[in-house]
């Protein structure tokens, strides 16, 4: 290669890089170093920190399904009358040894030796990232593409019970009568598909503890409840990364 040919070549030094490209590159570096140094605190760029991906309540418009069925539990109103359990058992023919939903009891010490009891209804959380669905070898359980409900196909179930070990919420049990794992499906087969708007447990609740609805609908009660001001919203066992769709609130 001759000298004059060499001179005609495009320079590979930094001078030919456009300023946007350079900025992009720098940003990338900062984002990466920032990320490694612990996120947005040390980074000069935002690294999408505004996106509340780690919170339990998604941004409006970020609900992946429509209808995005979910349940909001107004926990402190629960009085453990267990009408929900009875209604569930009757509607979904739950055997005596199993349950799809149940009530747990929490206790907190108050002053002067008193205690405050809180009843905590639990059920399948119809997670956005359901561990049970991931582990099923035969796709006998899956997240319904339309409603986001985690459903079961009993005839596909081989009974390995891995979904039961994987579920962080103890929502599954093996139903001998159908030789398959059984779980809450928001009464999809027994009520929703027949035109009813809520689940059996919701209908049975005398204290308006359980609210069922479509989170993708900003006019729905569930949406309004978990996006209301001055409300504490939490989910159970968020550390498992399952992204549950049963929300607990203190209002």
């Amino acid at each position: 290669m001759k000298i004059d040919e060499l001179e005609q070549l495009e320079s590979e030094d930094l001078s030919t890089i456009t300023s946007t490209e350079r900025r992009k590159f720098l940003k990338m570096g900062l984002a990466i170093t920032g990320l490694y140094l612990g996120g947005s605190v040390l980074s000069l760029t935002t690294v999408r920190s505004a996106h509340a991906s780690s919170g339990v309540v998604p941004e409006p418009g970020q609900y992946p399904y429509n209808p995005h069925y979910s349940m909001v539990i107004r926990e402190k109103l629960c009085i453990d009358c267990e009408r929900c359990k009875a209604a569930c058992v009757e509607t979904n023919s739950v055997p005596e040894y199993g349950f799809r939903t149940t009530i747990l009891e929490r206790r907190r010490a108050l002053t002067a030796g008193e205690h405050e009891t809180t009843f905590m209804p639990v059920l399948c959380n119809h997670c956005n990232r359901p561990p049970c669905v991931r582990v099923c070898p035969t796709t006998a359980t899956w997240k319904d593409k339309e409603t986001g409900i985690v459903v079961m196909n009993p005839s596909r179930c081989i009974g390995c019970k891995t979904c039961m070990t994987a579920c962080p919420y103890n929502a599954r049990y093996f139903k001998e009568e159908i030789r398959a794992v059984d779980k809450c499906n928001f009464c999809y087969d027994t009520r929703l598909s027949k035109g009813k708007k809520d689940t059996a447990c919701v209908e049975a609740c005398p204290a308006d503890v359980r609210i069922f609805g479509n989170l993708a609908d900003t006019e729905s009660r569930v949406f309004k409840l978990i996006h209301a001001p001055d409300t504490m919203v939490w989910v159970l066992r968020p550390e498992t990364g399952a992204l549950p769709n049963v929300y607990y609130i203190n209002a």
Binding site: L77, I79, D80, E82, E105, T117
Partner: peptide, 10 residues
């Protein structure tokens, strides 16, 4: 509520 409502469990 739960001061008086002891529920099925209580």
């Amino acid at each position: 509520c739960t001061t008086c409502h002891i529920g099925v469990r209580g």
